[in-house]
Design a protein around this nucleic acid. Sequence first.
DNA 1: GTAGACACTTGATATGGATCAAATCGGACG
DNA 2: CGTCCGATTTGATCCATATCAAGTGTCTAC
Lengths: 249, 249
Amino acid sequence: MAQAIPFRQASPLKASCNQCSLSNLCLPLAIEENDLDRLEDIVLQGRIFNRGEHIFDQSTPYRSCFAVKSGSIKTSIITESGEEQVTGFFMPGELVGLDSIGSEHYACTAKALERTSVCEFPIDKLEELTGKLPELQHHMYHLMSQEIQNSHQLAMLLSKNTAEERIAALLLSLSSRFQRRRMSPTNFSLPMARNDIANFLGLAVETVSRVFTRFQNQGIIKARGREVELLDIEALQMVSREFSRQCNN
Amino acid sequence: MAQAIPFRQASPLKASCNQCSLSNLCLPLAIEENDLDRLEDIVLQGRIFNRGEHIFDQSTPYRSCFAVKSGSIKTSIITESGEEQVTGFFMPGELVGLDSIGSEHYACTAKALERTSVCEFPIDKLEELTGKLPELQHHMYHLMSQEIQNSHQLAMLLSKNTAEERIAALLLSLSSRFQRRRMSPTNFSLPMARNDIANFLGLAVETVSRVFTRFQNQGIIKARGREVELLDIEALQMVSREFSRQCNN
DNA sequence: GTAGACACTTGATATGGATCAAATCGGACG
DNA sequence: CGTCCGATTTGATCCATATCAAGTGTCTAC
């Protein structure tokens, strides 16, 4: 599949957010064409992480937030007692690390779920820039408030919904995020393991597995390992009482 | 009950954040003495709400965020099906409405839990000001990321902890927030009903009640209605595995 | 190709907290 | 001071999901 890449630029070399296929999802979307080079001036592009590698963890001093360029990332909080709580999954175009701005260290640990490349935005430079570009500042506020809302939605899911409802909501959320990237909203491959899904949704792995097979038996989805096909989106929306918000952020 | 209020200033009259007893908790803490009047220029002070009144709800177009001056506020999401999910409690010095910046409408409903006064910060003016005062901008980012972290902590509590752990964590959080305001961290009166606690923590009212009496029988707390005395904070911290963060935000 | 390790599935059983039901408390108001 | 209604407590029972226990599948590395 991955044919040899002829000249992988080590990394520096000015980024061209301009030409990035994600520019309509990522920070550039809030910036005028002619200010774009100011963002390109501060971004560090081209860092690549293999599956399982940490982008940062809770002991890393906070420096930057990261945009996912390709691949995917899971963030989680590890408690003193070593328990993990997955707090989110991040796909291309999404920004990781907004939960830590102004903290000494990152508030969570970010791990690549597959081979993943990211763009890094040093926070001091980014804050300086948002001070000059009101549109960008507004967009940052918006992204952060979205993140708060998402997290509230998650809390809601965890406290009020059944296992089936939670899983349906997750599948729908992923679906709409694939769609945003002009990929199939019904056929995709889950970037995360059942374990991560279970942890994220506050369930046992066994329960996740059972719900997947139940959905499959009902003809709502087809799943083979991480490959998923949503056969009946409406049914999923029925199952998930609280689908509205999760879907159209 | 509400005796006539002799001269309630309709509202204008320039605020003096300067002299506000909460200036070390609220937005002024991020502002140089000599820039403070710029914040005072944009804040609308003196709005008062009686218990049960809405500061805003999900149909209100987003205009402002609010700082609690006295009293307390509960925020919640009301779903189409009418279910409520309490997303937070806000006490003096804390900022409400950060979850909605950049949205058309408020993402939640805010209700006064008791007689409450708030300071209103129109968001357009505030964004303009944060563009000029880097310290204030930084502080806003920090507050918002704190809110994300809090919400993640809540999600964690909901998905991993028992009823006792959740309630212990809430009591400790309230305790430290009272302490921050130089009030007793061990003797206080809960601003919210058992019902709100239950909803917030994803429990049934009955369970909350039972845990309160259990804690009481164990001599950890003393509770009579909303009056609470924490007799053994260490024991509470023991009960709540995940106390660390909740306490010292 | 095979060993080992991990990811996932399936089945049987246990349990924390929900739900249902009812009593008691407490405050607002006449 | 008594009434009424919502808030809180207490008790009995039930259920969704965790937990425990075996498989079975699948990927990696040698």
